[in-house]
Design a protein around this nucleic acid. Structure first.
Length: 508
RNA sequence: GAUUCCGUAGCUCAGUUGGCAGAGCAUCUCCCUUUUAAGGAGAGGGUCCUGGGUUCGAGCCCCAGCGGGGUCACCA
C-alpha cells in the first residue's frame, strides 16, 4: 500500500533499501551492549580525562554538520546529548571509504538510531566529544523529526523552531519526548514524586494494595461513571470513580494501613485540570483521626518537595509555593468569613442563598445548604489560597462517607488541602457507624431521585462490611496529577499525563 | 456545552486592498581544513483543515463542518 508519503519519507525509504543492498540490516536484532552514557561522560570526563578511552554507547542522531572528510553529529541517549566527531580515515582506515562517503554521509540521517565505539577527547573548541572508530546502524528512521535548534547566547539558551503545537505534541508524544528534553524531565519528576510517596508510606508499614477497577456499583465519590458490560456475566460494570469503599473493606479485614495509587475514571468535562482518567493516591490508617492525618500530609508533601527540588520552595507560574511545615489551618467557616467578611455559620438555606446573591455567586436552584457553602468557598476563597492551606470541618451533607464532627453534628471531620488555588488533597475521619452510613446513603438516594446525577449509590456489601466493625480510621486522597502539576510547574494536566485524552484522530 | 482565537512545505512561521503560494531550517546535488543555529552554489517539495457560496479571480470575504488552544460553565 502506498500512503501519502512526503518527499522526505520516500527518500528515506529508498535509503533503507540501499543500505540493505550494501548488506547493512536497517533493523538488526542483536543486543547492543553499551558501557556508558552521554551524561556519565560529560560529568566525569573533566575530572578524569584518562577514563573513557573505550566507550560504547547508543542513541539517536539529533544533528549533523558534515565538512568533507570530517563530521560532527550529536547523539542523544536517555541521559542527554553528546557530540560525536567522525573522521573519514578513522572510520575507514583502509582504501575503501564507502562506509564514510556513502553509508554515513548519504544513507544515515538525523533521527536514525546508531551505536558507536570510540574514545573521549576535547575538540579545539573545548567540547567533550567522542572520536568514533566504529558506527553501527541500529534503527533506520523513515520519518524526519522536527528540527529544534538551541544555542547559548550570553548565558541564556535560545531555542529556534521549537516543536510546540499542543495537538501534535499530545497526539505524537513520542516525538515530543525526542525533541523536547524538558518534557522528558517532567515525567522523570512525576515518577520521583510517586516513588517518594510510596517510600514514605512503605516506611510507615502500610500495605500497598490493588482493588477492582471494574466495579458493579461505583462509589466513594460524587461523579458520573463510565459504564461497560461484561459478556460472560451478562452484567453492567462501571469503571471506578474511586476505590475508597474497597480500601475500607480491607481495613475491616484487619490491615491497619493500606494505600493504592489508583487510576480513577470520571465521565465529565475536560479542562486543563481534568482528564477523564487520572491518578489518585488513597490511603487509610486505622485507629487514627483527621487531625493526625493533617500532620502526616504536611510531613509527606514537605518531603516530596525536598526529594524533588532539594528545597521546600517550588516555583509555580507567578508564585513561589513553600511546603515547609506548618501550614495555615482554617475551618471552612473561618476562611469564608476571612475572604467575604460574612459569617455564614448557622445560616439556613434561604439566608445562604441571599449571601450568595449579594456576592454575585450563581447557585443552582437545586443546591442545598452544603452545596451553597461549597460554591461560596469555591468562588471567593479557593482561588486565593496559593500556599498550601488546610481547610477543615465541612458541612455534613457534602460528606456522606465522613464521620460526624465530635463537637458539632452538622459538620464532618474532614479537611482539604488547597494549593495554588486548587484542591490537591481530601481527607476525613471515616464514618464507621453502619446505621449512620445507611442513613447517609439513603439521603443520597433521595438526592438522586431529585435529579442529582452524582448522588452516590447504596452499596449493601459495603454496609455489611461495616456491620462487622471497622475500627476508627482516617482516609486521605491526593490527586497525583495535580500535585505533579505543582511540583513540575505545569500549566495543564496534559503536561503531566503522557497520553492525555483527545478526540480520535480522523483516519486518512 | 457557550464563547473566542488558530489551522499555509517535514518543522517554525510570513502572506499587504481579493490578483502568479513565500522565507528560514530540514531534504536532494556539488564544494568544504576540529565544527557548533557551520558556510558557499544550485534544485526539488503544497488537498493553503474539509465542503459549499460570492467573485472575472479566494490562502484571504460569507456559510456549514472537522480538529486544536484559551476563557467560562459543568466538574474535583
Amino acid at each position: 500500500m502506498t500512503l501519502n508519503l512526503s518527499e522526505q519519507e520516500l527518500i528515506r525509504t529508498k535509503k533503507k533499501e540501499q543500505l540493505e543492498a550494501l548488506g547493512i540490516h536497517p533493523y538488526p536484532a542483536a543486543t547492543f551492549a553499551t558501557n556508558t552514557s552521554a551524561k556519565d561522560i560529560l560529568t566525569k570526563y573533566p575530572t578524569d580525562p584518562t577514563r573513557y578511552q573505550q566507550v560504547v554507547l547508543a542513541g539517536r542522531l539529533m544533528s549533523r554538520r558534515i565538512m568533507g572528510s570530517a563530521a560532527f553529529v550529536e547523539l542523544q541517549d536517555a541521559s542527554g546529548r553528546i557530540q560525536l566527531y567522525i573522521h573519514r580515515d578513522t572510520l575507514c582506515p583502509d582504501q575503501d571509504k564507502t562506509f564514510y562517503n556513502t553509508v554515513f554521509k548519504k544513507l544515515i540521517d538525523m533521527g536514525d538510531i546508531v551505536g558507536v565505539h570510540g574514545h573521549v577527547f576535547r575538540t579545539k573548541m573545548g567540547t567533550i566529544s567522542i572520536h568514533v572508530s566504529q558506527l553501527i546502524l541500529l534503527t533506520k528512521a523513515l520519518k524526519p523529526l522536527p528540527v529544534v535548534k538551541e544555542v547559548v547566547e550570553q548565558g541564556t539558551v535560545k531555542t529556534y523552531d521549537a516543536f510546540t503545537d499542543p495537538e501534535q505534541r499530545y497526539r505524537q508524544r513520542y516525538v515530543d519526548l525526542i525533541v523536547n528534553p524538558h518534557v522528558r524531565e517532567i515525567f522523570v519528576k512525576r515518577a520521583q514524586l510517586i516513588r517518594s510517596i510510596r517510600q514514605y508510606l512503605g516506611v510507615q508499614g502500610y500495605l500497598e494494595v490493588e482493588t477492582p477497577i471494574l466495579q458493579p456499583i461505583y462509589g466513594g465519590a460524587a461523579a458520573r461513571p463510565f459504564k461497560t458490560h461484561h459478556n460472560a456475566l451478562n452484567t453492567p460494570l462501571y469503571l471506578r470513580i474511586a476505590n475508597e469503599l474497597y480500601l475500607k473493606r480491607l481495613i475491616v479485614g484487619g490491615y491497619e494501613g493500606v494505600y493504592e495509587f489508583a487510576k480513577d475514571f470520571r465521565n465529565e468535562g475536560m479542562s486543563r485540570f481534568h482528564n477523564p482518567e487520572f491518578t489518585m493516591l488513597e490511603a487509610y490508617v486505622a485507629y487514627k483521626d483527621y487531625l493526625w492525618m493533617m500532620d502526616q500530609v504536611e510531613i509527606l508533601l514537605e518531603k516530596v518537595a525536598l526529594d524533588l527540588h532539594s528545597t521546600t520552595e517550588v516555583c509555580v507560574g507567578q508564585h513561589t509555593i513553600n511546603f515547609q511545615r506548618p501550614w495555615k489551618r482554617f475551618t471552612l467557616f473561618e476562611v469564608i468569613q476571612h475572604f467575604t467578611g460574612i459569617d455564614v455559620r448557622g445560616m439556613d438555606e434561604a439566608a445562604l442563598r441571599d449571601v450568595a446573591h449579594k456576592l454575585g455567586t450563581t447557585v443552582a436552584a437545586s443546591a442545598g445548604k452544603g452545596k451553597i457553602i461549597d460554591e461560596l468557598f469555591g468562588s471567593h476563597c479557593e482561588p486565593k489560597l496559593i500556599q498550601p492551606t488546610f481547610i477543615t470541618d465541612y458541612p455534613i451533607e457534602m460528606s456522606p462517607l465522613a464521620k460526624r464532627h465530635r463537637a458539632d453534628p452538622s459538620l464532618a471531620e474532614r479537611f482539604e488541602v488547597i494549593c495554588n488555588g486548587k484542591e490537591i488533597c481530601n481527607a476525613f475521619s471515616e464514618l464507621n457507624d453502619p446505621l449512620d452510613q445507611r442513613q447517609r446513603f439513603e439521603e443520597q438516594l433521595e438526592l438522586g431521585k431529585r435529579g442529582d446525577e452524582e448522588a452516590m449509590a447504596l452499596d449493601e456489601d459495603f454496609l455489611r462490611a461495616l456491620r462487622y466493625g471497622m475500627p476508627p480510621t482516617v482516609g486521605v486522597g491526593i490527586g497525583i496529577d495535580r500535585l505533579s502539576m505543582i511540583m513540575t510547574n505545569a500549566a495543564s494536566i496534559q503536561e503531566v499525563i503522557f497520553f492525555p485524552q483527545m478526540r480520535p484522530e480522523k483516519q486518512v
